[in-house]
Computed example of a mutant assay.
Amino acid sequence: IKRARAATSPTIINKYFSELEKSIENVPLGNIINYDETNLSDDPGRHKVITRRGCKYPERVLNHSKASISLMMAGTAEGELLPPYVVYKSTNLYDTWVKNGPVNARYNRTSSGWFDAEVFKDWVKEVVIPFFKNKQGKKVLIGDNLSSHLSIELINICKNLDIHFVFLPANSTHLTQPLDVAFFRPMKVAWRQILQKWKKTDGRSLSCVPKGCFPRMLKLLMDQININSENNIRAGFRKTGISPLNPNEVLARLPEEAQNDEEAKEAIDKSVLNLLKEMRYGSINIKEPKNKKKIDVISGK
Rank of each mutant, 00 (worst) to 15 (best):
K200V: 09
P255N: 11
E37F: 09
Y281F: 15
E59K: 06
M187T: 07
D144Y: 10
S271A: 14
E126G: 00
I227N: 10
Y281W: 13
A117P: 03
F17Q: 04
Y85G: 01
H164D: 05
K121S: 14
F237D: 04
L245R: 05
P58R: 06
L150F: 15
P215T: 05
R52G: 04
L179M: 09
K2Y: 12
A267H: 04
S18L: 05
D43A: 03
A235Q: 09
R109D: 04
M73S: 09
S172M: 04
L81P: 00
N100K: 14
A7V: 07
D36V: 05
Q259P: 05
M187D: 01
L141Q: 09
P289S: 05
D162H: 06
V61D: 01
I155K: 15
A105F: 06
V61I: 07
D43W: 03
Y16M: 02
R3F: 12
L276I: 10
V297T: 06
L150V: 12
D116R: 11
N134P: 00
Y88P: 11
I69L: 10
S207I: 14
M222Q: 10
S65I: 02
D36S: 10
P83L: 02
I242A: 10
S18N: 12
K133V: 09
Y16E: 01
E249F: 05
R185F: 05
Y107P: 06
G101N: 04
L220H: 11
K287V: 15
L82R: 03
V86I: 15
E256D: 15
L141Y: 02
N248A: 10
V103E: 10
A74R: 07
V166C: 10
M279K: 12
S243T: 14
E257L: 13
I152Y: 12
E37Q: 15
R109A: 14
Y85F: 15
K219W: 03
S207N: 14
L146H: 15
A264P: 00
I268G: 01
T110F: 10
R3M: 13
Y88D: 09
G45T: 01
K66F: 03
E25L: 12
H164A: 03
Q196A: 04
R192E: 00
I33S: 13
K211A: 08
A4Y: 08
D202C: 08
L254F: 08
L221P: 01
D43H: 12
Y94P: 01
